[in-house]
Design a binder for these strands. Structure first.
Lengths: 183, 183
DNA sequence: AAGCCCATGTAATGAGTTACATGATTCG
DNA sequence: CGAATCATGTAACTCATTACATGGGCTT
């Protein structure tokens, strides 16, 4: 019964349900500002999933004619769709993490590299993490002020990213100390 | 010149170079014990990449006849392969993190869920993280005792996983406190 | 006799990415 | 006049996964 569909289908379905009567364009903008941090959805993928949820009868679309800007289709979840969503939410989470890290992969083979190159790589990683940390930090603070239940969960997601980034920055320190003390 | 190939190709190439004259079967076992934590490689993928690196001239294979167990092919990197590997190692890391989390995706839409179900989900996540932490912790300690330069980098990778798991466990605590204090 | 270890793949499928196409309108 | 915004897709591709196939030898 809980037929198997990719997680992205539910991501899009959830979005439609959360912000009904939005167009694909608007949903994409929403996703970029929120979901993107832990479940990136490219434009193409979004439109494909929109087609899918409609085909599944989980959402219905309505055409809205516009004159100044191009006409658009807007989406709403059906009762079937809301049921599918609720069902998915309670289904046990499959695999925690499909983690793949370009950095760790290289580090694993780093005995081949010169110390300076490894250091370089770590610094790049550190910079990327600092950007992440700043973004998540800003998000957490922004969402702390709002107090809707929606914002609460958004804040928790951001906090997850923040804590992860912090821990990894600490790891970079550790790694640098360990690798710096020789050669 | 640095023609574009998937990271997994270099993962396999690196493995061959690290443990020369191993069969696909042996390499797969190695990968499961090490790489798997930050760059999982399925059996099928491994064999495909073995074919690819040979086709590219980055490795050469030799047939080894065996009587008690099935015969096997063993692999060695060529000088071209070692060059490709060194080249890849110094190439700047593309995108840091393709992070996708089933848990966060669900949490993002959790306003629909009952408090008990959310709690359940967090507990499952916590358990998974505890397993991860234990695994990484064991690995770090095991690799701390060895002192080859190879083990050093393995240890750092494991430490990355450990720190990440620890931070996320702390996050679960935070989340539980925040969500526990109401309804 | 059941089942795991060695050993290597093929076939089918699908999720997701990148590049490209279109075309009107509004803003600097 | 150029760029950005709104708006929606198609086409081509490829990484990776899952299921399946094979088959002898060794252990319980």
């Amino acid at each position: 019964m809980p037929t198997d569909h990719p997680e992205s289908t539910y991501a899009v379905l959830g979005l439609i349900d959360k912000v009904p009567d939005s167009s694909g364009h608007e949903l994409a903008a929403m996703a970029d500002r929120s979901l993107a941090h832990f479940w990136p959805i490219s434009r193409t993928l979004l439109y494909r999933e929109l087609g899918r949820v409609v085909a599944l009868g989980w959402a219905e679309s309505e055409r809205v004619e516009q004159t100044r800007v191009p006409s658009k289709s807007i989406y709403r979840t059906t009762s079937d769709g809301r049921r599918a969503l609720a069902d998915w939410l309670t289904r046990p989470v499959g695999k925690h993490s499909n983690f793949r890290s370009d950095l760790l992969l290289r580090l694993f083979f780093a005995h081949q590299m010169e110390a300076g190159q490894i250091e370089r790589m770590l610094i790049d990683y550190k910079h990327a993490l600092e950007v992440q940390r700043a973004e998540f930090d800003a998000l957490v603070h922004k969402l702390s002020s709002l107090s809707s239940s929606q914002a609460r969960f958004g804040r928790l997601s951001a906090l997850h990213g923040l804590r992860t980034a912090e821990a990894r920055l600490n790891w970079v320190e550790e790694a640098q100390q360990e690798l710096g003390g020789d050669s």
